[in-house]
Amino acid sequence: MTDLPQWADLLISFFIVLGASFAFIGSLGLLRLPDFMARLHAPTKNTTLGVGGVVMGSMLYFSVTDAFSLHELLIAIFLFLTAPISAHLLAKAGLHLELELNENTKDLRKKPEQYTDKDS
């Protein structure tokens, strides 16, 4: 563990705490939101900033103490590529299993038959 200049110390702590809080809020969302589809929103969105914050912290730490370091960016790139796809698949599964939605949900499908797997 090398000594960091104070500004770096503060900045890195800020990013790590930011990332950790967003990851926590995302997990909390899984618990608090009312139905399956709503629950999907929390992990897909908040983990991107959660991981993003930690990645920023790591990039700064290694750039300051060691050599200039950017390969943490790959984690962010892969996350951007995969998070929407897993969300899409989960949403699709939920839709086709016709899971119960929150009673507030407005269903604005004009042609529901377009999105089911039942042959009409």
């Binding site: 929390a42 929150n102 407005k106 269903d107 604005l108």
Partner: peptide, 25 residues
Amino acid sequence: IVVSNLDIALIILMPRKRIQPALIE
């Protein structure tokens, strides 16, 4: 993405805030 993160965080943290979900075409 950053804006949406804050947005969702706010919804999650607001105690008993009524949300209005919708399925949109």
